[in-house]
């Protein structure tokens, strides 16, 4: 992996974020709502509105507004919330922290369950275990988060009363209660990922187990176990890194829904609130931060892949 490859990837991230910022800005800025009216209310005097427009730069050309906004973003300044009048950035980043916690727990749970499930299904291909995992993964990828959430709340919170249905307690305040509140959201978010990734691990491993070099290793006298752990797994799990990174997109989408359902004050919920209130700076900030998270996850996955896979000659 050469420095040029890393440089190229960094340039690509820059380009990605530029395009994303343009899209986000374009989509939000052509909103039919007049930002000045929204802030001052319907009854504001025309003079006050005009003054505010000048102050907010709403009379400038759209490009100038974009550049102005972009310059602010690059300094970590996303503007003032139209809803609260407070700076957007601190609230958003605080919310992002909570969302990342949810995402992190979900990814860990997913890896812990999906990889062994995929391996077992591949090794016992065609047997009952394989069919079971296969069936569950079909069901898993077909359940939207709001359905999963409904089911887990019905069963675990309503009927069995094991866990709280909604709410959020910071881990720093009361770790145990905080964790109890996180269980249902994490289960909900990770289900679709577990289903998808276990299926991918299975099909990759089945392919690898059919390859010539696995047969060659078996014919050198190595046991099935040795071949599986030393020769096959590494090669089957490599592509999974990329798949997991791509799934971060679903994960972030799922986070939005799940936070709304479980009243978890993360960035997804902030975004929904902002969208419902037509709070432009908050929408822009939320969307941009989510997209950046995704782009960075993919960047890290690419670098990890390149580092682990010696075959690929990056230039």
């Amino acid at each position: 992996m050469s420095p040029a490859y890393i440089l190229k990837r960094i340039l690509l991230i820059g380009y990605t974020l530029l395009v994303v910022s343009l899209i986000v800005f374009a989509i939000t800025q052509i909103l039919p709502a007049d930002a000045a009216v929204m802030m001052l209310g319907e009854n504001a005097t025309p003079d006050a509105l005009a003054a505010l427009r000048v102050k907010m730069g709403l009379n400038d050309s759209i490009w100038l507004q974009y550049l102005h906004w972009l310059a602010g973003v690059l300094h970590g300044d996303f503007g003032l919330s139209m809803r609260t009048g407070q700076p957007v950035a601190p609230a958003m980043f605080e919310a992002l922290g909570r969302s990342l916690l949810l995402a992190l727990f979900s990814i860990v749970l997913m890896l812990v369950l999906a990889i062994p499930l995929g391996i077992i299904a591949a090794v016992r291909r065609g047997r009952a275990v394989d069919l079971g995992v296969s069936f569950l993964s079909y069901v898993g990828v077909s359940l939207p988060e709001f359905v999963t959430a409904t089911l887990v709340v019905l069963v675990l919170a309503d009927w069995l009363q094991w866990l709280p249905a909604t709410g959020y307690v910071p881990l720093t305040e009361d770790p145990l209660r905080g964790l109890r509140h996180l269980v249902l959201p994490v289960l909900t978010v990770s289900l679709i990922l577990i289903a998808h990734v276990s299926r991918m691990v299975r099909s990759e491993l089945v392919d690898v187990l059919h390859s010539d070099y696995i047969r060659a290793a078996r014919l050198k006298g190595l046991s099935k176990r040795q071949v599986l752990f030393k020769h096959a797994l590494r090669n089957a799990l490599l592509p999974t890194i990329t798949i997991v990174a791509l799934d971060v997109g679903y994960l972030l989408g799922g986070v939005i829904v799940v936070e709304e359902i479980f009243a978890l004050p993360g960035i997804g919920r902030q975004l929904i609130v902002a969208i419902q209130a037509r709070d432009l700076p908050s929408i822009q900030a939320g969307a941009l931060i989510l997209a950046t998270t995704y782009a960075v996850a993919n960047f890290l996955a690419d670098i990890a892949y390149a580092w682990l896979d010696r075959r690929i000659q990056y230039d």
């Binding site: 690509l12 380009y15 990605t16 974020l17 530029l18 395009v19 994303v20 899209i23 986000v24 989509i27 939000t28 052509i30 909103l31 997109g249 679903y250 972030l252 989408g253 799922g254 939005i256 829904v257 975004l271 929904i272 969208i275 037509r278 929408i283 969307a287 989510l290 997209a291 995704y294 782009a295 993919n298």
Partner: peptide, 19 residues
């Protein structure tokens, strides 16, 4: 296209519906 795909599809759909 890759850049656009880095906006999760649910988020993109949300933004567009909002628009």
């Amino acid at each position: 296209v890759d850049a656009i795909m880095s906006i999760p599809s649910l988020l993109l759909a949300l933004l567009i519906v909002n628009l």
